[in-house]
Design a protein around this nucleic acid. Structure first.
Lengths: 187, 187
DNA sequence: CATCAAATAGACAAGTCTGTCTATTTAGGT
DNA sequence: ACCTAAATAGACAGACTTGTCTATTTGATG
């Protein structure tokens, strides 16, 4: 049985995750969070000292879940080249599901990256994590060597970043899939 | 002689441009704008009906200035390949000057892209403008044809987007220059 | 110099925000 | 069944928000 506090914490974070991503951190008030999470305000402030602390927890949790989902998607494929391409497919699908809100880390960085050092730090770790996954797959891929491992890693990382961002501007995953096809030709 | 109203409008927009970019739109209040622009509140509301209208004007003006600066930088080079690479150098330098705030259009989109259709529209136009400049230079470049013109255009666009975003996360232009060197090898 | 639109300072309204506090109810462990 | 820690509803403070309004001063033009 889950302790009561855990249930409340989960309700808060589930709601914060949904609202912060869909509306933005600045545009989401504490009052909306407690109402939609269906908890009392005092409960929220018992679990999180300030709204900023809730933001930090949101970014950390998003980091964890982001890569859990990604690893699950990658592990459905065995070929390293296929895994690299599966990253693009995964994000294309996720952007569609999340209505093309773009990258939650970039969003958080744009809204509140400078407001608390913990926020920026967690965002940087998430991006390094992403690059690291790509790097390891590139090393295993046996690609054409049109580019060095390092250059190919960087190019995949940057085109992925760019295409997720582009998805949030044009409200389509077209650029993510375009990036996939281009990278495929370089593998 | 400039009409008085133009001077006031310029002061407002200069200040809004600086504050919206550095702090974010949500984190910048009207009161801070009028104080730092050194104008009266009634003057601001004579020139812009609402804060949202000021945001729209800010994005439009940023669009104009962004590409004025870019064209100026590009036109210092004659070779089309060199022009393409100059795009990266230009943005690397600009990010440094602007203290790695990232892309103003993406920032505006993340904070307020859904709040007014004019904002999203202007952002989309700015991104299409960027891609169009790249497309024309690729067509003139006589590149190696490792990729089609269309693929190369897309890849340059996406790696540029990704690297400017990355600059705002890691507070360095390293990824912009890394993207430049990789694209150079594909030209 | 007179005129008249435009800029000014700043009070004000009405609402929102975060965060605190009190008093009550709930629910799990012994 | 009791005891205790936790969750609840909701009032409240204090600061901040956008936007309006009034009364005054400025400054360019005929």
């Amino acid at each position: 049985m889950k302790p009561r506090g855990q249930i409340v914490t989960d309700k808060i974070l589930d709601t914060a995750e949904r609202l912060f991503y869909a509306q933005g951190y600045c545009n989401t008030g504490i009052n909306q969070v407690i109402e939609e999470a269906d908890i009392a305000k005092a409960s929220l402030y018992k679990h999180f000292e300030t709204k900023t602390d809730l933001l930090v927890a949101y970014v950390q949790r998003t980091h964890e879940r982001w890569f859990e989902r990604l690893e699950t998607a990658i592990n459905k494929v065995t070929d390293p080249k296929g895994k690299l391409l599966a990253i693009f497919d995964h994000h294309a699908e996720r952007q569609k599901v999340r209505e093309f809100g773009g990258c939650p880390f970039i969003k958080a960085n744009d809204e509140a990256g400078m407001s608390d050092p913990r926020v920026l730090e967690e965002i940087q770790e998430a991006k390094l994590h992403s690059k690291d996954i790509i790097k390891k797959l590139v090393a295993q891929s046996g690609h054409k060597k049109l580019l060095t491992d390092q250059d190919l890693t960087e190019l995949i990382f940057l085109s992925l970043e760019g295409s997720i961002t582009s998805a949030s501007v044009f409200k389509t995953s077209a650029d993510i899939l375009a990036a996939k096809k281009i990278i495929q030709k370089l593998l």
